[in-house]
Write a protein that binds this DNA or RNA. Structure first.
Length: 305
DNA sequence: GCGAGTCAAGGTAGG
DNA sequence: CCTACCTTGACTCGC
């Protein structure tokens, strides 16, 4: 397999632009939401144009792009107000072959035993699926973690599966599941993905943090092959970070070491098959982590026929 | 203009 | 029971 796109998340350090500016709930008015969404979409388009100039074609849009979108106190209809603007950006991204994604945050939990938490998560995933569909209907994804364990992981997984089926068809189609660094590792997430027919985004860094002793490396190729299978005809997506030196072992570094990317590419080469995959770099310095690796990425693209 | 206090939301680990 | 951590700063107020 060969690397297609490298991407980064939510904001651009070089340009000083952020797709997820927000404000306090106390300041919530329809006008404030409208102004903020307009600003975030302008930032998104400027970032996309800069990215294309740098040959970067993969970006995560912040889940705050529409502040309080699923909050009961908000009545702003972003779909009606920004239909044309979203279509413009969608057309630009499509013309340039740009892939987009979103990643609902830590509060979006489908496995929770608390009904109000699950209801909020369903509403959250629903609007983000519609937003993602408006921008990247073909390859857009919503990345989610499996949530908490609550002292009984099998029951939590059952709740996840049950609540997954309560999502809108669009949200079900856009959702993908990621292994985390302390509760649901790849061996938990992969069977869930296979059971639900949901693609799995494999996070190399979380996997390494979880298996710090290295003893999981033996079966890793089999896991990766199954991860790729969960994507069917779609292009698989991976997450990669380097460890922050001296920080907590789960912390992301400012940049991504070329050696860490190379290690991931070596593994993927061993998985085999002539098909592409994308890698989202999760690093503090965002675009600055991707830039030095773009040339590296070009060298690993499949040769043109 | 600036520094300090605060922010919608969940969950885990450790004391 | 409480705090720090994931994340993740940056918004908002009061001076």
């Amino acid at each position: 397999m060969y690397l297609r796109h490298l991407g980064y998340a939510c904001k651009n350090v070089t340009l000083g632009l952020d797709t997820g500016r927000s404000f306090r709930l106390a300041s919530l008015t329809p006008e404030r939401v409208r102004d903020t969404v307009a600003m975030n979409l302008d930032a998104l388009e400027a970032i996309l144009r800069w990215n294309v100039q740098q040959n970067i074609r993969f970006l995560r849009v912040s889940s705050d792009v529409v502040p309080f979108a699923s909050h009961p106190a908000s009545s702003f209809d972003w779909e009606a107000a920004f239909a044309e603007r979203l279509a413009e950006i969608r057309d630009y991204a499509a013309a340039e072959g740009v892939r987009l994604s979103m990643h609902p945050g830590q509060f979006t939990v489908l496995s929770s035993p608390r009904p109000e938490v699950v209801e909020a998560a369903l509403a959250d995933l629903d609007w983000q699926a519609r937003f993602m569909h408006a921008l990247d209907p073909d390859e857009g994804t919503l990345t989610l973690h499996a949530g908490g364990a609550y002292g009984d992981k099998p029951s939590a997984l059952e709740r996840f599966a049950y609540n997954f089926r309560r999502l809108s068809p669009l949200a079900q189609r856009m959702l993908i599941l990621e292994n985390d660094d302390k509760v649901y590792h790849a061996d938990d997430v992969l069977p869930l993905c296979e059971r639900l027919g949901v693609p799995m985004v494999f996070d190399f860094f979380h996997h390494r943090v979880f298996h710090a002793d290295g003893r999981r490396e033996a079966g890793l190729l089999d896991v990766l092959a199954r991860v790729v299978d969960t994507w069917g005809e779609r292009v698989p997506k991976f997450h990669l970070s380097s460890a922050k030196e001296g920080g907590p072992r789960t912390a992301h570094a400012d940049l991504v070491l070329e050696a860490d990317l190379q290690a991931a590419l070596d593994l993927m080469a061993q998985v085999g098959g002539d098909r592409p995959f994308d890698v989202m770099l999760e690093a503090k310095q965002k675009d600055c982590a991707v830039l030095p690796l773009v040339g590296f990425q070009q060298a690993h693209l499949a040769p043109s026929p």
